[in-house]
Simulated scan of single mutants.
Amino acid sequence: MEIVTIFLIALSLAMDAFAVSISNGVSVRGFGKKEAAKQGLYFGGFQFLMPLIGWFLGISVKSYIESVDHWIAFALLAVIGGNMIRESLRGEEEEGKSSLTAKVLLLQAVATSIDALAVGISFAILDVKIFQAGIIIGVVSFVLSYIGGMLGRQLGNFLQAKVAIAGGIVLILIGCKILLEHTILA
């Protein structure tokens, strides 16, 4: 898989964390660079770990599903992207908290990185270099979480749904690209 594709996936996966970071920046009293870096480390760390966990799970079943792997990758990415869009349209994003305790950040980080686990399974099917992909995903998530938190007070909550919808659309398009590469363009 190309670096550009992995980077686009990283951007898509980081959109939930970005939206939550904006919400945190808006709602946490005294939010500043320290809080932005702290949430960035949580979100980036989990976005790095979850694809690795998914990859190891995917490798264990790869030999059984190689003939339909492109369909599975497409389905996983389409479902993840569709869920991101559906949740955004229904307003189901993670609400901002009044304080950024370790427990709050842990829950937010896990909630915003579950989709990265499924992407990791797709990566195993597609023979992606997982550590390289994990690092890209983690760094992109850290940077966007930091920026999102710092921009939170200026941008406000209206941006959350739009960002998650864009991320969902990108994931679906990447799933379509994978499917086309393995069927029509093969």
Results as ranks from 00 to 15, higher is better:
residue 80 I to Y: 03
residue 117 L to K: 07
residue 158 F to H: 14
residue 81 G to K: 08
residue 94 E to C: 07
residue 118 A to N: 05
residue 87 E to G: 11
residue 69 D to A: 14
residue 70 H to F: 14
residue 156 G to C: 04
residue 86 R to W: 14
residue 85 I to M: 14
residue 117 L to I: 08
residue 146 Y to F: 15
residue 109 A to S: 13
residue 118 A to Q: 11
residue 87 E to A: 15
residue 121 I to A: 01
residue 133 A to T: 07
residue 159 L to P: 04
residue 133 A to F: 04
residue 83 N to T: 11
residue 87 E to K: 15
residue 78 A to R: 08
residue 88 S to N: 12
residue 75 A to Y: 01
residue 115 D to M: 09
residue 157 N to F: 08
residue 118 A to P: 08
residue 125 I to W: 00
residue 143 V to M: 07
residue 155 L to G: 05
residue 96 G to R: 02
residue 139 V to Y: 02
residue 100 L to E: 01
residue 101 T to F: 07
residue 89 L to H: 04
residue 97 K to C: 03
residue 152 G to E: 04
residue 136 I to P: 04
residue 69 D to K: 15
residue 91 G to L: 00
residue 154 Q to G: 10
residue 121 I to F: 12
residue 71 W to V: 15
residue 131 F to G: 07
residue 85 I to N: 03
residue 147 I to Y: 03
residue 89 L to C: 09
residue 112 T to M: 01
residue 153 R to A: 11
residue 78 A to K: 09
residue 100 L to T: 03
residue 73 A to Y: 02
residue 108 Q to D: 14
residue 121 I to R: 00
residue 157 N to S: 09
residue 110 V to E: 10
residue 128 V to Q: 01
residue 137 I to D: 02
residue 123 F to S: 09
residue 112 T to K: 00
residue 155 L to Y: 11
residue 125 I to S: 05
residue 155 L to R: 06
residue 151 L to K: 06
residue 127 D to A: 09
residue 153 R to T: 08
residue 86 R to C: 05
residue 107 L to A: 12
residue 135 I to Y: 05
residue 98 S to Q: 13
residue 102 A to E: 12
residue 80 I to K: 09
residue 107 L to N: 13
residue 71 W to L: 15
residue 137 I to W: 03
residue 110 V to F: 15
residue 158 F to Q: 14
residue 126 L to N: 03
residue 103 K to Y: 09
residue 85 I to W: 07
residue 94 E to W: 04
residue 105 L to M: 07
residue 155 L to S: 09
residue 73 A to C: 12
residue 109 A to W: 02
residue 111 A to P: 03
residue 156 G to A: 04
residue 89 L to Q: 05
residue 133 A to C: 10
residue 104 V to F: 08
residue 114 I to M: 14
residue 101 T to I: 09
residue 154 Q to A: 13
residue 111 A to Y: 04
residue 69 D to T: 11
residue 108 Q to L: 03
residue 140 V to E: 00
residue 127 D to Q: 12
residue 115 D to R: 06
residue 147 I to P: 04
residue 119 V to Y: 00
residue 76 L to I: 15
residue 144 L to H: 01
residue 144 L to Q: 01
residue 142 F to M: 11
residue 120 G to K: 00
residue 110 V to L: 15
residue 151 L to F: 10
residue 80 I to W: 04
residue 76 L to V: 15
residue 111 A to K: 00
residue 146 Y to P: 06
residue 74 F to C: 12
residue 78 A to I: 13
residue 76 L to H: 06
residue 76 L to K: 06
residue 102 A to T: 10
residue 100 L to Y: 02
